[in-house]
């Protein structure tokens, strides 16, 4: 099991403090900058490892950054704290994005990122809770995160804890039936302490979601299963923040975050082939330059 990096964790705490003390413009700037740094980190990890899921990583990084740097009640130095909020990355193939985010928050030393996917590394191609602090359950096969999150939300209620469960789902992932079994359970049980975030980039591995197996109208589907639905721009950090922190009603919340696969790197944006293509060294330089702007 990796251990926390106290220095980075302290910087993360200062970030969180400054965020809560700041007005909207500063807040937006802080999260934007942080997310783009993680994008750059992730691109280098993928380049070094020669594998990864770059399109989905770029797509989900604003969601992950907003959660870890402004919303989640967690402590990188106490990953086992019982009343922490729970975060589950159901689309586990974007582990690189999660690792970059966790390391930036101090859950483990950033130097560890250099080992991503290397021999005997804790940082497998899909996240492993047994080795990586901050990972709550092992994902990789799609359609597992929501049922597990429902279990965590039921547990929080049973133990009268105010902790909240956030789970990030891919949109293609929603073709798995297990999601709808869990959605039904969550709706039936009025799990107000559960928020499912759909990374709605409209692409899956081989094609557009709507050309493969139609998901729309996605909002109506979740409503019909007993959920409240919010739809936001998934790259607008403040809109995400508002959706994640808005007072909850009587039902679980689904945040449909409209995103662009490959976001932030012009030649990757909305292009299906970047699902798991590995950028060349020159492409990483070009992409990093775009992200530094």
């Amino acid at each position: 099991m990796l251990v926390a990096d106290p220095g980075t964790a302290a910087a993360w705490r200062r970030f969180r403090q400054e965020f809560s003390d700041s007005g909207p413009e500063r807040r937006r700037e802080m999260l934007r900058e942080r997310a783009n740094q993680s994008r750059t980190t992730d691109l280098h990890m993928i380049g070094r490892a020669g594998l990864g899921h770059v399109g989905g990583d770029m797509s989900v990084l604003d969601i992950l950054t907003t959660l870890f740097f402004s919303v989640l009640r967690v402590d990188p130095e106490k990953p086992d704290w019982a009343d922490r909020d729970r975060f589950v990355l159901s689309k586990g193939h974007t582990a690189g994005a999660l690792y970059a985010t966790l390391a930036a928050a101090g859950f483990f030393p950033t130097a560890e990122l250099d080992t991503f996917a290397g021999p005997l590394s804790a940082l497998n191609g899909h996240p492993n809770r047994v080795k990586v602090p901050g990972v709550e359950t092992n994902t990789g096969p799609l359609g597992h995160g929501l049922p597990v999150s429902v279990g965590m939300a039921v547990a929080a209620r049973l133990s009268s804890s105010s902790r909240h469960v956030y789970v990030v789902l891919g949109d293609g992932e929603l073709q798995e039936g297990s999601n709808w079994e869990a959605a039904m359970t969550a709706g039936h049980r009025h799990l107000t302490n559960l928020t499912a975030v759909v990374d709605r980039n409209r692409l899956q591995q081989g094609a557009r979601t709507e050309e493969t197996n139609t998901l729309d109208p996605l909002d109506d589907k979740f409503r019909a299963f007993g959920w409240d639905v919010l739809e936001v721009d998934g790259h607008d950090h403040l809109a995400l923040y508002d959706a994640f922190t808005a007072p909850r009603g009587e039902r679980p919340t689904c945040v449909i975050a409209n995103t662009t696969k490959g976001r932030g790197v012009s030649f990757m944006e909305d292009r299906v082939e970047w699902h798991h293509k590995v950028p060349s060294a020159e492409q990483i330089v070009a992409a990093s330059a775009e992200l530094a702007r």
């Binding site: 594998l51 996917a117 191609g125 899909h126 492993n128 092992n138 990789g140």
Partner: peptide
């Protein structure tokens, strides 16, 4: 065959 993608794969 999916080596580094790990036991899930």
């Amino acid at each position: 065959a999916y080596g580094e993608l790990g036991p899930t794969h």
